[in-house]
Amino acid sequence: MRLDFNVLWVDDQPDRIAAQSKSIGLKMAAEGFNFSPRYCQTIDQVEAVISEDVFTDEVDLILVDWDLGNDTHGEDAIERIRQIVQYKDVVFYSGQATVIELRQKAYERKLEGVYCAGRDGLIDEVIGVFESLIKKVLDLDHTRGIVMGATSDIDHMVQVCLTLAHDKLDDPGKAEFLTEAMKRVTEKVKQLAKRGEKLQAAPSIEGLFKAHMLFTSDDRLRMLANVLSMDSFTAHAASVDAVKAYREGVVTGRNTLGHAVLVPQGKPNSVLDEAGKPVDIEEMRELRKLILILRAEFRSLLSGMQT
């Protein structure tokens, strides 16, 4: 699972489900996930979407309305979906047919993995299925993968932003840009040289593990904050706050997860970090929520710098 909770939503009148979609999105955001629906109004559109291998692999849940117009019904769409997407949960809903009637229609078509709901109960049903799904993956090991994947995406955006910033500068600006970067590299070389001398004098496995790379993701973040403070990028200066918030609020948590010792401490959803401090699911929820907010900020910055 990723931070984006991908949903295939089949309804011939997407405007009438806008309120439910917003409510579902808010409830998922409170858990640190981004509700990402993809709407289809016809079975033809559904068939086009489910033929895309990438989307089929990444879809987390499928919502299908019963009345799809033109004498087409949801069980027809689900039957077609099940031919390709066999193991994803489906929420089958209607504002006309009762839940009992929907269950009967699913039973007659031998459709498995289908939850049924009235339109009024759609939000609760979707959130119930969502919570059931995330409980299966929100042990610390899976959470680590979710966070690492999201922060890797942000690290890539930072690198692209730095490349774009460099290309927008004049020659003196580019020279200053690279000089500043090389200062960091030179300082790292000195630090590594000192560590190397210490390691040679007193070899140890701990010292070996402390010999890190020269220009780390934190170096790139610091560099980006400096670049955005330059006169040439005043239009993007407000993004400095997002960069700083990411460094201070996310990077530490990411590193904690990256080095966490996955040994149960009293209960299965709590582990110890490398300093022996318990890390629990509640902390990880807050970390996911912060990453969602800052990821949007970095996407906005990248989009602005690309224009």
Rank of each mutant, 00 (worst) to 15 (best):
D4K: 14
F5G: 02
L8K: 05
Q13A: 10
D15E: 15
D15R: 12
A18Q: 13
A19N: 05
Q20W: 11
K22G: 00
M28S: 01
A30S: 13
F33L: 08
N34I: 11
S36E: 14
S36L: 14
T42E: 05
T42P: 05
I43M: 06
Q45Y: 03
V46S: 03
V46T: 07
D53T: 15
V54H: 10
V54Y: 12
E58V: 07
D60H: 11
D60M: 06
D65Y: 09
D67L: 13
L68F: 07
G69M: 08
N70W: 07
G74L: 06
E75K: 09
A77T: 07
A77D: 08
E79H: 13
R80A: 12
Q83D: 12
V85H: 05
Y87G: 06
K88S: 09
S94D: 09
G95N: 10
G95R: 07
A97H: 10
A97F: 07
T98I: 02
E101K: 10
L102R: 02
R103I: 00
R103D: 14
A106I: 09
K110S: 12
L111C: 02
E112G: 07
G113A: 03
G113E: 05
V114S: 08
V114I: 11
C116V: 03
R119D: 10
G121L: 04
D124S: 14
V137T: 12
L140E: 01
L140K: 00
H142E: 06
R144C: 01
V147L: 04
M148W: 08
G149I: 03
M157A: 06
L162G: 03
A165I: 04
K168L: 13
D170L: 04
D171K: 14
P172N: 11
E176R: 15
F177Q: 08
T179R: 15
R184L: 11
V185C: 07
T186G: 10
E187Q: 15
V189Q: 12
K194D: 15
E197F: 11
E197Y: 10
E197P: 00
L199G: 02
Q200K: 13
Q200R: 13
A201S: 11
A202D: 15
G207I: 04
F209T: 11
F209Q: 11
F209W: 09
F215V: 02
T216Y: 08
S217M: 06
S217D: 13
S217G: 03
D219G: 01
D219T: 01
D219K: 03
R222G: 08
M223V: 00
M223W: 12
L224K: 05
N226Q: 13
L228S: 02
A235D: 15
H236D: 08
V240K: 13
D241M: 07
A245H: 10
Y246T: 01
R247K: 12
R247T: 10
G249N: 08
R254P: 00
N255P: 00
N255Q: 09
N255E: 09
L257Y: 08
V263F: 07
V263H: 08
K267W: 06
P268M: 07
D273W: 09
E274P: 00
G276D: 02
K277T: 11
D280V: 04
E282D: 14
L287F: 03
R288D: 01
I291C: 05
S300K: 15
G304D: 14
